[in-house]
Amino acid sequence: MLDLQGDVVEHVDHLERLGITAVRVKEPSDFVHLAGLIIPGGESTCLSRLLNIFGIREIILREFQRGLKLWGTCAGTILLAGKVMDESPCLSLIDIEVQKNAFGSQLDSFTAEVTVPRVAPKPIPLTFIRAPKITRVGRAVDVLLRQDDYIVAAESHNVLVTVFHPELTPSLAFHRYFALKCGLKPSADEESSVIDPTWNSRSWTRYARF
């Protein structure tokens, strides 16, 4: 878990539910023995600033060359995109074009429930918070989920991007899917990962106690 800013502990909670050991990384020396890296939701301008200031950006690019798998949720998608409307890209590791904050203000944030065949057999709850849209994908990128005239989930060989937040829902399906992409063995199977009945919207707080 990239631990600079944003909804870090929400992802950690989901990974632990799948029996995956989550390590929070924020120093260059932390980036060892990682199978994958999740870039969480948060504010992309803040995250990109911090990535640049402390040289983490170069470390991620180096580890990517060595085979590190990456997943960006919401702001993470913006950081991974090759093109961002009206600004320069940050990591540029997947050939997609994104439009930031494409739905409007917080009043336009919403939830949905959609089946993503490649990820799980049953409908998955999705949460969009001031989300970006993926407006174009390159040839080497597969679309996982399209809604209306835009794309909300896509992947290349090494990178997964979702403009919504699976970590804010009871579904472990996308975390399981990413774990498999990283070559890990999540404890839940395809069926049981769709909804974890023991999760609730305050589960994150157990990792954010003082």
Partner: peptide
């Protein structure tokens, strides 16, 4: 309830900032 949760969750995105 759903709108309230979305609003709590936006604040969760701001954590560490």
């Amino acid at each position: 309830r759903e709108r309230y949760e979305l609003n709590v969750q936006l604040a969760q995105m701001l954590k560490g900032g």
